[in-house]
């Protein structure tokens, strides 16, 4: 199935801003992060359909996953 991935801030380095990717049916957010070589502890926020998701969220065809690194300075 096809999903769209949006990356933000430093996660764009050497990757992309927006991409459509083929993933296996039943793929989770963790599977996508692994395929992008993003370490889970580096992630700050993740959204699907405007809602925060955890790494065990199973993705559905056509969904968009947005991933932000942990940016918390002031």
């Amino acid at each position: 199935m096809l999903i769209t991935i949006k990356l933000f801030a430093s996660f764009r380095d050497g990757r992309f801003k927006v991409a459509t990717r083929e993933v296996a049916d039943g793929a989770t957010v963790a599977d996508v992060l692994r395929s992008l070589e993003i370490d889970e502890p580096e992630v700050g926020m993740m959204f699907v359909r405007a809602r925060h998701v955890d790494v065990d969220r199973v993705l559905a065809a056509g969904e968009t996953l947005s991933v932000f690194p942990l940016v918390g300075g002031g």
């Binding site: 801030a9 430093s10 940016v71």
Partner: peptide
């Protein structure tokens, strides 16, 4: 509420 680091912020 906001956060900043490197070249980025929210």
């Amino acid at each position: 509420t906001a956060g900043v680091q490197e070249f980025y912020g929210w």
